[in-house]
């Protein structure tokens, strides 16, 4: 096994990343800065978008909901990848930290998907004349919400952590088939939902004065997501590692 230890830099990194203790300590150092950055970006983006961005020629002021709707939808989808990839790493390498990340990503993803649906419904009323339509984009997002809730429910459906983790990871992986459907739903089916505002491959279909605050909000939501994922994972680490020496030392140290 010498080759394994000799070929160490990348594996050391991998194993350290798999250590709950290392994760807890490192994220503890990052969290204050990340939280500050998230707060700054979100407050700037929100004030900019709600008060200073020009109103939409067709939709008027109701379009300002975009500054919450699009970032929440972005992260609802990106969060699913994170959950599914964490689940896959857990299944393949039996890494317990990875399962903890997967479990933590589920409530955050469910909350953000709910926000995407809720802000969408509220935006739909003045724009489409209805809160809800069973159209492809909206329905596939509802399925995403159920997938998140399913992963969450499976965690509590088994007596053993291991069985719950594996079942959740498999559901998360199977559910990834829904993601491209969500992305493509506005192109594949006739739908009320407008096509994507931002695409990686082409310029945004929005005026820069409207687009810039949206970009700030999206970055803010990414930072916020990271903060939330760190916090949920840290809570899970403390719960699952409660019998380990380092957690006991941490708690004792905190009491002095």
């Amino acid at each position: 096994m010498n080759w394994l230890t000799n070929w160490s830099p990348s594996w050391q990194w991998f194993h350290r990343l798999g250590s709950p203790r290392w994760f807890y300590q490192t994220t503890g150092r990052w969290l204050p800065w990340l939280s500050l950055l998230a707060l700054a970006l979100l407050s700037t983006g929100l004030v900019w978008g709600l008060g200073f961005a020009p109103q939409d020629a067709k939709q008027g002021n109701s379009f300002r909901i975009i500054y919450l709707h699009v970032p929440a939808s972005f992260l609802a989808l990106a969060g699913y990848y994170i959950m599914a990839i964490a689940g896959a790493i857990g299944l393949i390498w039996k890494m317990k930290l990875s399962y903890m990340v997967m479990k933590s990503a589920a409530p955050i993803g469910a909350a953000l998907t709910f926000l995407a649906l809720f802000t969408g419904a509220i935006w739909g009323k003045p724009t489409w004349g209805t809160y809800w339509v069973w159209d492809a984009r909206v329905t596939s997002m509802l399925i995403l919400l159920f997938l998140y809730l399913g992963v969450l429910a499976l965690q509590y459906a088994f007596h053993s952590n291991e069985a719950g983790n594996r079942a959740s990871a498999i559901l998360a992986l199977v559910g990834t088939v829904n993601i491209p459907i969500i992305y493509k739903s506005v192109d594949w089916w006739y739908t009320l939902h407008q096509p994507a505002t931002i695409k990686l491959t082409s310029a945004p279909s929005m005026h820069p004065d409207m687009f810039q605050p949206l970009l700030v909000m999206i970055l803010g939501f990414y930072c916020f997501y990271t903060v939330a994922l760190f916090l949920f994972t840290r809570a899970e680490i403390l719960r699952r590692e409660r019998n380990s020496t380092w957690v006991k030392e941490l708690v004792m140290g905190g009491q002095h």
Binding site: L50, S62, I65, L68, A72, L115, I122, P126
Partner: peptide, 13 residues
């Protein structure tokens, strides 16, 4: 007139 929609979205978010 769009205030109730926009602000509800903001507060709930």
């Amino acid at each position: 007139g769009h205030g109730p929609f926009v602000w509800t979205a903001v507060l709930v978010s």
